[in-house]
Nucleic acid binder design. Structure first.
Length: 223
DNA sequence: CGTATTTGACCCGCGC
DNA sequence: GCGCGGGTCAAATACG
């Protein structure tokens, strides 16, 4: 069902580092992207992987998956148990999300460097604040801002160190909805777009289409 | 003219 | 304490 041209290209890209992916149970992605700087096993305790059967490979599928995610219709899996037990064949995993509790990790250099994401988790631990749930996608697309059914307003752009592509920051335009997302391109492969969502919408997508119909179609499609 | 984007300034947590 | 760097703010600008 996902045997599209983009899927093939995506997999080729993702499989570049077979060792690390099989070792960690998820794909090593752009080392300069803070949310993906989790190349150590400890961090997996705080991640939930997207089930392979629900892997999405195109912007359209991303939109569908995101819609489901927002409605909590897709159960989260604990990466800590899934990745290192029976599910060793994790080649289809390509996205992850943070679980909503702090982790105790120590910062280390090189490939195991933990970026902002992890550092903020540490802050949360000390401040006893709960971080908004986050999950992210790696998608092959010419379009930076993928249509996920929600309306976003850009509030910042930043050139992250050691990358040539700027990271863009968006906020949901809906009143009282504090969902944010970050969009950036992979340095190693500019064809890939990484979208990170933070928080959960308090409303349904503001699309012109018939949302309920779309939703039911998606549900039937997956389950 | 109202709304969205751009972009430099600013904030703040972290490591040294 | 200081500097770095990611994230956010907000004034200026663009756009319709």
């Amino acid at each position: 069902m996902f045997s599209t041209a983009s899927q093939t290209m995506l997999n080729q890209s993702l499989f570049e580092d077979q060792d690390l992916s099989s070792q960690l149970g998820f794909f090593p992605i752009h080392s300069n992207f803070s949310s993906f700087q989790l190349g150590c096993s400890q961090s997996l305790k705080n991640l939930a992987m997207v089930p392979p059967s629900l892997a999405v490979d195109t912007p359209a599928n991303l939109s569908e998956y995101f819609a489901l995610k927002q409605k909590e219709e897709i159960p989260y899996q604990s990466a800590g148990s899934q990745c290192f037990s029976s599910q060793r064949s994790t080649a289809d995993y390509w996205a992850w999300e943070e679980m909503n509790y702090p982790m105790s990790i120590k910062r280390s250099g090189g490939e195991n460097y933990l970026g902002v994401s992890a550092m903020k988790m540490k802050k949360i631990k000390t401040r006893r604040k709960v971080r908004e749930p986050r999950f992210c996608f790696k998608t092959m697309s010419d379009i930076d801002v993928l249509d996920d059914g929600y309306k976003w307003r850009k509030y910042g752009q930043k050139v992250v160190k050691n990358t040539q592509h700027p990271r863009s920051y968006y906020r949901c335009t809906q009143d009282n909805c504090r969902v944010k997302k970050r969009v950036e391109r992979l340095a190693e492969d500019p064809r890939m777009v990484i979208t990170t969502y933070e928080g959960r919408h308090i409303h349904s997508p503001s699309h012109d289409e018939d949302d309920s119909q779309v939703s039911s179609q998606i549900t039937n499609f997956f389950w």
